[in-house]
Amino acid sequence: MEPLVQRIDILRRTFDEACRGIADIKVLQDLRNKFLSRKRGYLAQLLEELKSLPVSERPEAGGRINVLKDYIQSRLDEAERTLAATTTASPRIDLSLPGRTRLWGAPHPLMLVTQEIEAIFLSMGFAIEEGPEIETDYYNFEALNFPPHHPARDDWDTLYTTDNLLLRTHTSPVQIRVMERRKPPIRIICPGRVFRHETPDATHLPMFYQVEGLVVDEGITFANLKGTLEYFLKTFFGEKVKIRFRPSFFPFTEPSAEVDIECLVCGGGDAQCRVCGGTGWKEILGAGMVDPQVFKNVNIDPERYAGWAFGLGVERVAMISHQLPEIKSFYENDLRFIRQFMIK
């Protein structure tokens, strides 16, 4: 055993000698092979020699070899770390090369805007409700206080199916369905696809997205309508945006209002503004106090309860907030357009 122990010590010294001043990774690699290679490394040879020792001596000698192996291993690892630390600082890699990015799919802008709107109302305790797109005349018109043959229907040009159902012209039928089903307090928004018999132009398409909202409870006032919608618009368009409520007409609300925000392009300063036509205002949504007749139609007592409702076109809001002139850009699905919303 003696010679083996001596050889272990010699090997250790030899290693220490060789290990001094390793200049590059190549030398280090050679050293590692020389000592630790499983087949021809010095240590492997020593281990081979173990077999020639009597069984009783093997554990001790083996232990020593292992100690040396661990020692060499750790010295080499340390040397490698030192080397690595110096080489990374070397100019061989051009760190200005572009990083490797992964593609992350982009959301459609209309879904993005819908979700932004939803988030604001969700934070105020509104629930999201949905309903069918193929509707009956009753839910789309009659229950909403559009008598048959009323000229007000002209403002909601309608697409009909062959069996006299229709494609809902607004998501208001969802409001009716919810009021039929549930007792106040009600506080909902209804997003979804709606349809109109419209010839496509820069700002109209026969299908678009809406978000409508409804609140029904005791003691609800027009002041509440104003307060909540102002909060919504300021959250969406910014604290400083100017808002105007003006009288309008919808069969299902009384009083009715249209809500304008100041023109985001000219702020009212340009009489020739192409966006607002010089008025300084852009119409953003319609609203009003729920008409008592609508309440009667769903068996809610208008003497006890009051409510307010609003409706907006998602495309319109998106066009105004992103200053897009053409509604069709939402449905061309040009990925050069859609991918811009990846970072929004």
């Binding site: 593609l103 879904m111 797109e133 299908m207 939402f330 449905y331």
Partner: peptide
């Protein structure tokens, strides 16, 4: 999105 698909919307 994570799998790299972009979202589109088409008329009905």
């Amino acid at each position: 999105f994570h799998y790299g698909f972009d979202e589109v919307l088409n008329q009905s």
